[in-house]
Design a protein around this nucleic acid. Structure first.
Lengths: 173, 173, 173, 173
DNA sequence: GATGAATGAGCCTTCATTCAT
DNA sequence: AATGAATGAAGGCTCATTCAT
């Protein structure tokens, strides 16, 4: 991965996240990255190839995060960890998550590569805690996850800490 | 509103919702509507004018829904009504909500015309129920609303009824 | 010629003269005239038909002017009359002349319907005055005519009266 | 300036001059130049940018011509030089001058960048020759210039040499 | 690896024109 | 006579992509 390749990925991530994939032209990406138009295609074949390279990078980072959660033994800690993710999206990851969520609504089918493992982990936690319907509870956690991410990325409410408290209370966390 | 105008709005709503606003060309809208491309511009001035006409229609429908909730007296019924909305998005409204949520991620700033009144209603309900932090609880309801809508519109889980049960239990509804 | 027909001709003349024939759309003419788009075509068949109707009107007015000049007996008076035309373009004729001159430069071939008779009259006058090369002198008068019209219609110099004096001196008028 | 850029300028100059700026489409320019339409915009940004590039080229050529006239000492030679210009428009400059004159009639305001310096030079010459009203005489020279250019570019009379003789006689040149 | 000239398809929009009312 | 909805072609312009250097 050369320096220019990274510049391109960085620029594309930023622009795609801010304006949307199809609203950003490759020439704008090139300008933002300070490289020639042709270079994007030499490195990433396609505009879509560029997108997939970004997503791949993100997927790796996300999987390592999820890997950490699996290691947790106490089921309450597991739920705490999962539901804390959206509260802790920091600036460097902000663009990536925004892009993911924006793309969800344009893709032909829903990408479950992230949610499926997360649901499994949550369902196990609820089972261990003796919840009567761990599957539905796990699904509700995914729902909360999406809602929280939407809030954190778009609405940006000021009282996130209080919201977390109110939420955790419902699960006795 | 002539017959062709409605055909155009209908086609545009469908395509914009499915593929995203900027990924759909006016010529595709025209073809889907069975209409010449020029007619779109005679009636809606712009591609953006077309979008705004759609949003206006939806806003009206949404406001009448919200109007119904304000009339409810029992605060538990109020919360039940709000949180039930996403479960009851029917087919005719499906496209509209999908478009709204897709656009959230592309707009420059978050449109609060829907969420602000809803938050107020929810906060009042929580206050009446004696919750200690009604503002945070109301925000959490908005978050759940977004998460539920995302699920209903994108992931489409099969056990929605059980999820609703699990959710309502947390609020003793 | 109905009232609306005249409104259309008037509007078209004004707009064509100001912005140029091909830069003005029929819909703009319709709006300026306060009539529907279709009416232009019912009355004038074509956008070009509209132009020709304007030109025809102008041609008639111009020919009647020229007819007056032929009646003059004294050759000096004749020259005075011809060369005075451009100085006396009044406001009502301004649009028409501007259009004529603008079109000269776009037409495929030069329209001589105006210049040919004028040249003949001028050549006769110079012959009567004993000029050695009346044909060339007549051509020079046409040239002056065009130059004066250009000045009066475009550059609008403030000292037109002095210019006329300087010019007439050269012909001992 | 690549070879294709020059091809585009050449083609545009020819077509704009012959048919008028707004009557010529960029696709026609591209076809005439043997070039893809997109290339016009890569090199000249706009259709108007293309026009301005042409005008800039012409302005440079014209200014160097005018520069030659300022160097002349004898005022009669100066007038001879100015009034000779229109007679000596050669084929390579023909398109450019035609375009200039055609545009005069479409522009919102008259471009004096050429006429103002020329008027100054002429006024000085007349002053040196002791004319009583050099300003008006200079204006008359501009008028003759425009008329002569119109003749040379549009009407194309056969006896230009005799006309020049008749004209010069009036100034004892 | 990197540039940027070049392309052709497609985009949004406007236009002249037709036609039912 | 008059309207204005409707059309299809064309207009200016942008885009993703290719290729010679």
């Amino acid at each position: 991965m050369t320096e220019k390749q990274e510049k391109i990925l960085e620029a594309a991530l930023k622009l795609f996240a801010e304006k949307g994939y199809s609203a950003v032209s490759t020439s704008k990406v090139a300008r933002e990255a300070g490289v020639s138009e042709g270079l994007i295609f030499r490195h990433f074949t396609n505009k879509e190839g560029l997108l997939q390279a970004i997503m791949e990078q993100g997927r790796e980072r996300a999987q390592s995060l999820l890997g950490g959660v699996v290691m947790i033994e106490d089921p309450k800690d597991t739920l705490r960890a999962i539901l804390s993710f959206p509260f802790e999206i920091n600036k460097s990851e902000h663009h990536y998550w925004r892009l993911i969520y924006a793309l969800k609504w344009q893709a032909d089918e829903y990408d479950q590569s992230m949610s499926l493992p997360m649901k499994k982990i949550a369902a196990d936690a609820f089972r261990n805690l003796g919840y009567s319907n761990p599957e539905a509870e796990a699904e509700l956690v995914l729902i909360l996850f999406d809602g929280l991410a939407t809030a954190q990325l778009l609405r940006k409410p000021s009282n996130m800490e209080e919201i977390r408290r109110a939420l955790f209370d419902k699960y006795y966390l």
